[in-house]
Design a binder for these strands. Structure first.
Lengths: 196, 196, 196, 196
DNA sequence: TATGAATGAGCATTCATTCAT
DNA sequence: AATGAATGAATGCTCATTCAT
């Protein structure tokens, strides 16, 4: 049991390192030796914990995908007005990204379907679920009169999610601005636009 | 001259094919044989036109990067009101992306600095120039009173550009919606927000 | 006939260029394009004159190998005293080398048996004939009492020929010393040694 | 430490095999697979010990070049009469060649400057040092009256060194004659010539 | 006669993976 | 649990060679 725990802890260390390395250099450019070096180990040793590079990628990704969906689910289900929900959802999105930037970066930048098709499919499904929740939220706002009746819920969702996702390519929370503040600005833009 | 033209035309065919293949599978996963096959050729033949895989990537990218910057430049320099400029700029962005989706996709999804550092640097510079133009446009709007005085020009620029860039991951113009229409929706969102 | 002559003349130009290029870069490192460039042509054009790179090598070598043997033959057959014959033979050797340095350089420096076995065998035979003539000359000198009775004819031959051959690695007649002068010094050394 | 020793020992085995293969087939014609096969390994495995084919060549050559120079240095510095020094130097030359024929063969027969310029330069310098020692020895003999005053030290050096070097192309100590015996004959020739 | 274009075989090199220790 | 060593498949690249024009 203690052995098992130690092994599991080490696995976590490795997946974390892998997520970092994969995100930084790209999955294809990253070598197993790079991941191992990050941990002061040798490439061969990783195979004591994982079957393959793809397996390592899968493990690095698998557990953490569910988080964002669950969070958004609870936000949507709450009794807040839609405006508040949108604000909270955007903030939640950026906070998750901020914490797991390396991980989510891989979803955007890697051609995972050519590498780990099963995993890619699973991730895709999660993504669709996430998008559905957003669409539902927007439709709720339109129905309740809080959002403009003429906006296209699906396009709007794509815009908001795309906007949030794009932070992966440039935002670093240690760069002066907090993710919460950035989320506020984004929400302002999305809700009220820039026109005077 | 005719020979030169033919050669140049073939080079263009190859770079186009390369951009497609690189964008689809990712630069690292793409084999020279894939690019060649796209043209009914064999891998070795590509070396008659290009020195290396990296050279092919560079050629595929190089010439076309300047376009977007030039276009935005002329839009910003025009006499339109800022609102119209923003609308036109967003539309121009999406139109360029629609036409060269494969190409611009690579900028987002590949870790080019690890592969072709010089090219990556050059592309980066263009990107910064593009962003500067947007920031200038937003500041102009604030000064003229057309845009809200409290918005942060840089963050707003990042939001708009990120929003437009994110279409690379999902938008296909043959999917029912024209890029012009999508651009209009995006401009509505950016300018006026979603609140009723 | 005129056509044939022109073709033959061109073939000679090509073999000369090939000998030069092969000797300079080594047969394996030399590309057909290098040989062609030496003549302001393209690689493919050489195949109008020669079947293959090996054929080109063979042609470059073939005709000229007989020269040295024939010359030495006539020297040995003459009525001069052995000392004079040795002097003349050494000079002839260096003169041939000086004129066809590129060509003979290839015999020494290339692993021709791994590349053109038939040619290598033919060249080898010529070489043995050449050596036999030298051995005969030395034996003649011993018999006649002109050369020391205790020297080993074969080893002596190897020494003399090796000595002459070694000039290929350093001697250039435009470097200040004439091949005739060098031959004289070599003959002095071979005949009388260096001891006071 | 033991690990390091084992690794180093293996590296030596590989460089030895490489020297053999390179000398036999020529560097360009030799495949990494050939070198590996000589050791019962596969080509890829060599890269665990060396960076590249060129690196392997460099390693094969590097350490062993200094030997001959050092040996000649000590001979020249001794108190023997010049005649004895010359005899010893020739013998040393042939003995080194006999032991490392494969290695030194490459210096003569490969166009190393086109392949590993740095290494070629380094080897060249050693060669010049070696020649300088010989020239010095000959000048010493002339000054002391042991050698003829009229001989040209540099040409004489080239002759002696060239003579010794030429053995690389034919001499094999298991062919009946010992290198020591051959060296003796060469010294007789060099010192006293062949004339009766 | 010469060339531009294309080919395909060959080879160096990389790297995930295995395995005895 | 980890490593050093070895492997083999994959792939970029070179270059002799072919051939239609």
């Amino acid at each position: 049991m203690s052995e098992t725990k130690k092994r599991s802890a080490k696995r976590d260390l490795i997946t974390a390192a892998a997520a970092r390395v994969f995100a930084e250099r790209g999955y294809a450019q990253a070598r197993m030796a790079d991941v191992a070096a990050e941990l002061g180990m040798r490439a061969g040793s990783l195979y004591y914990y994982f079957d393959s590079k793809e397996g390592l990628l899968a493990a690095a990704v698998e557990d953490r995908v569910a988080l964002a969906v669950a969070e958004l689910e609870s936000i949507v289900a709450s009794d807040d007005p839609v405006e508040a929900k949108v604000r909270r959802a955007i903030e939640a999105h950026l906070l998750v990204f901020d914490e797991h930037a390396a991980l989510y970066g891989m979803f955007q930048t890697e051609h995972l379907d050519g590498i780990v098709p099963d995993l890619a499919r699973a991730v895709d499904e999660r993504g669709r679920a996430y998008e559905s929740l957003w669409v539902g939220l927007i439709e709720e706002g339109i129905r309740s009169g809080e959002l403009r009746p003429r906006i296209d819920p699906w396009v709007t969702m794509k815009a908001i999610v795309g906007l949030c996702n794009s932070t992966l390519f440039w935002f670093e929370s240690d760069g002066g601005m907090s993710p919460e503040l950035l989320a506020g600005r984004f929400a302002d833009l999305v809700l009220g636009g820039v026109m005077a």
